[in-house]
């Protein structure tokens, strides 16, 4: 006669969650919920898709969160470019002002897209203005901060610059194709 072996008590979901939180606390994670959310958000941006979680945390430390009211300019044409802006919430109009006080809208950028990416390369003046169409939240990443990050974490910045080069290359290709099509039509 053998006594039935008592079944091991299954670890409940709550306990697991508590242990996960405790482990996170011990590792210094989740201390800052705001930063945690920033990391989660940044992971969805094509710029940072190749970065690991630890690398993403380094990037999250150097980005600024800003809020713009409706019709407020994020930057204006001709200003020296210093930062890339990633739209976290709301919509941004990329436009060029006309002499008659009207402006030509080039694009509307929404959540998870970005504007002013060329500012990460040099300080050349902005080629267009960016205006918030609704109440907008953005994350700003400055060139100088990225330069400083490259001193300590060159792997992160090289990955970001590679992604930037790919994006700019794709846009150049698209522009070339557009010009070719227009030329064909004109011919």
């Amino acid at each position: 006669m053998t006594a039935a072996k008592p079944e091991a008590a299954p670890v409940s979901q709550e306990k697991r969650a508590a242990l996960r939180i405790l482990w996170g606390q011990l590792r210094g994670q989740n201390r800052n919920e705001w930063e945690h959310n920033k990391v989660k958000f940044l992971k969805r941006i094509p710029f940072f898709e190749n970065l690991s979680r630890r690398q993403m945390q380094e990037v999250a430390k150097i980005v600024y969160e800003r809020e713009y009211e409706e019709n407020e300019f994020i930057f204006e044409i001709g200003q020296p470019g210093a930062a890339l802006f990633i739209v976290q919430q709301g919509e941004v109009s990329v436009e060029i002002p006309n002499p008659d006080d009207e402006s030509t809208q080039l694009a509307v950028v929404s959540k998870l897209s970005f504007v002013g990416e060329l500012a990460l390369l040099d300080e050349s003046p902005r080629s267009a203005s960016a205006r918030a169409l609704t109440k907008t939240k953005v994350l700003a990443l400055f060139r100088k901060d990225l330069d400083r990050l490259s001193e300590t974490n060159p792997d992160i910045t090289s990955s970001i610059y590679r992604a930037l080069a790919t994006i700019i290359g794709n846009r150049l290709k698209a522009t070339n194709e557009l010009i070719e099509r227009r030329l064909k039509i004109a011919a």
Binding site: E67, F73, P80, A82
Partner: peptide, 26 residues
């Protein structure tokens, strides 16, 4: 400090002077 002190002060700048404030500090 890994830029937290500067971040704090730059965050106080109004939107219009945000990029300028960062450039100035840098």
């Amino acid at each position: 400090d890994r830029g937290q002190i500067l971040h704090f002060f730059i965050r106080l700048a109004p939107n219009r002077y945000f990029e300028l404030a960062h450039s100035l500090v840098e």
